[in-house]
């Protein structure tokens, strides 16, 4: 999006936007997500501006397994048959692709009281 904005000569760009309000004078108040779950509040004099929208005040959509199943049946086979097209992003060379190690050896603790567990967790948190 930033590159598209650059091509269009737009120097007022905002990413991770959760809220946009047009003020009476035509300026734009924009809330962008930044670190720590906070929002940066900016006021832009007005268009043109480029805004990469996040999810607003809404969370991510609820899980919907039906959509996933429909994708598996319809979209993925079509993608597998599709011919590769050059899109100008050439040059990258993937040296290695790997799946992360999924399993950890989990020590299961069943016989400790809440007090004992609390002390053990506290010692672990404190690095004792």
């Amino acid at each position: 999006m930033q590159m598209v904005g650059e091509r269009l000569g737009i120097l007022d760009q905002f990413q991770g936007v959760d809220e946009l309000r047009v003020e009476p004078d035509g300026s734009l108040e924009i809330l962008e997500r930044v670190e720590g779950g906070k929002h940066q509040v900016s006021v832009c004099a007005g268009p043109p501006a480029l805004l990469g929208w996040a999810t607003g005040h809404l969370p991510e959509p609820r899980n919907n397994p039906q959509v996933g199943m429909a994708n598996m049946r319809g979209i993925l086979p079509a993608l597998q048959r599709a011919k590769a097209a050059a899109v100008g992003g050439g040059g990258v060379r993937f040296v290695e692709v790997s799946l992360p190690r999924q399993q950890r050896e989990t020590r299961i603790v069943k016989d400790l009281s809440p007090e004992q567990i609390a002390r053990e967790i506290l010692a672990w948190i404190s690095g004792d």
């Binding site: 120097l11 930044v34 779950g37 906070k38 929002h39 940066q40 509040v41 900016s42 832009c44 007005g46």
Partner: peptide
């Protein structure tokens, strides 16, 4: 410079 930053807002 057409944008003014007015600080941070916590959720």
């Amino acid at each position: 410079i057409r944008t003014t930053v007015n600080g941070l807002r916590a959720p």
